[in-house]
Every structure is written in C-alpha cells, then in structure tokens.
Amino acid sequence: MSSQPLLLMVNAFIGTAGYRSLYQQLGYQVATEWSERKAISLLRKTPPAVIVADFYHQTDFRDRLSNLESLLAAAQGSPNTRILVFYEAAHQAVLDKVGARLRIDAALTLPVQEEQLRATLQSWLGTPPAPGPAREAGP
C-alpha cells in the first residue's frame, strides 16, 4: 500500500490531466477516471485524499445542473476527501448553485494558474478538510 495520498482526476472535457506531473511532484498518487460512474465506484472503494474534476453546465441536462452532481453527492459521505473543481467563468452562477447544496472545497477558473493550483494542493497535504460547505473561489 502506498503512503502517498491518492488524488483522483475525473476528466470530462477540460483536461485536468494536464497537471498530472504537478500532482505527482507534490507527492500524490494519481488515479484517472474518464467516467463519473467509475469515479464514484473508486470513491466508494478507496476514498481519495483529493478529487480534481472538470465542472461544466449544459442547458439540456434534464434532472441536474452539472456533470458532477452525482460524484459530489457521493463524495459528501467521505468527509476527509477534498474536492477541487476547474470551471469556465461563464458557469460561475451554476457552480454557486451546486456549491450551495454540495461541498466543494475549492474551485479554480480556467485557465488554471499553476501556482494557485500548487498552493491549494500543498495546503491540503496532511490537513483534514474543515467541516461545512465553505469553498475557496478562484479569481
């Protein structure tokens, strides 16, 4: 078993994968899932220290506002898992609605500033999440 904290990348469109080497440099063991269903399965079997996921909104979603609501709902049962989402500034209002219902620990607007990403992930190493739905927002 690895002593490195597990970071789960959930790639939908934006490409969180572009930061894999940064995640590894910081000491995270990286797992990648391209499907939300498979990410939820991994989350339930082996709760990661961090989930990094792409957030998007489409007007044709019938029963939800975003691509991540099922994953975020599943992650609520893992209070020691930090949740970081990357999002387009145009989706800020939708992200705020989702964040009011489901815990998101940090959100970074695209294009993601690597130093801000590094600082966020470094601050989480060895530090448990604070309780509640509070969220840090990117500029």
Rank of each mutant, 00 (worst) to 15 (best):
T46Q: 11
T120H: 09
L71S: 04
L71Y: 07
A137N: 10
E114P: 00
Q25S: 15
Q24F: 10
F86M: 11
Q113P: 00
E136R: 09
A75L: 10
A100P: 03
S123V: 02
T46P: 00
P48D: 01
I83R: 14
A119I: 00
L110S: 06
L102E: 01
E136D: 09
P133K: 06
R44N: 15
D96A: 11
S41A: 13
N80Y: 07
D63I: 08
V85E: 00
G99M: 01
L68A: 02
G132T: 14
R44Y: 13
P128W: 03
L108P: 01
K38E: 13
I51V: 15
E69P: 04
T59P: 03
E114C: 00
A137I: 12
P128K: 06
D96M: 02
T120V: 11
R135G: 08
W34Y: 14
R37P: 05
Y87E: 08
P131C: 02
S41P: 00
K45N: 09
T32D: 15
V98T: 03
L95E: 06
G132Y: 04
A134K: 10
V50E: 05
L65W: 13
Q116C: 01
L95D: 04
L125I: 11
H91C: 14
L72N: 06
I51T: 10
P133Q: 00
G99I: 05
A130V: 15
A74V: 04
R62H: 10
Q116V: 07
L42M: 14
E136Q: 12
A107Q: 01
T32F: 15
N80A: 10
T127C: 13
A73N: 11
Y87K: 01
Q113W: 00
L125C: 02
I40D: 05
F86L: 12
A39P: 06
Q116T: 03
A93Y: 14
A119E: 15
Q76V: 04
K38I: 00
R135D: 04
I104Q: 03
L42K: 08
L22P: 01
Q122I: 08
Q24I: 09
L117D: 07
A75Y: 08
A107T: 03
N67G: 09
F55E: 05
L22F: 08
Y87F: 13
R62L: 11
A134D: 03
Q58G: 11
D96K: 04
R82W: 13
K45C: 09
N67I: 14
D105W: 03
A31V: 07
L108A: 05
T32A: 13
A107N: 03
D105M: 04
N67K: 14
L72V: 09
S21Q: 15
I83P: 02
A137Q: 11
S66K: 02
S35N: 10
R64S: 13
E115Y: 06
T120R: 12
G27M: 09
R101S: 12
Q76N: 04
Y23H: 10
Q113G: 04
V50I: 14
Q24C: 07
D60K: 14
R82K: 15
E36P: 02
Q113C: 04
T32C: 12
A130Y: 15
L42E: 08
V30I: 10
T81Y: 02
S41M: 01
A106E: 08
R118N: 04
L117F: 10
Y28N: 07
L95T: 01
A134R: 13
H57L: 02
A89Y: 09
W34D: 12
Y87D: 07
P128R: 09
G126Q: 08
P129D: 08
R101H: 15
E114K: 08
P48W: 05
A119S: 13
S78Q: 09
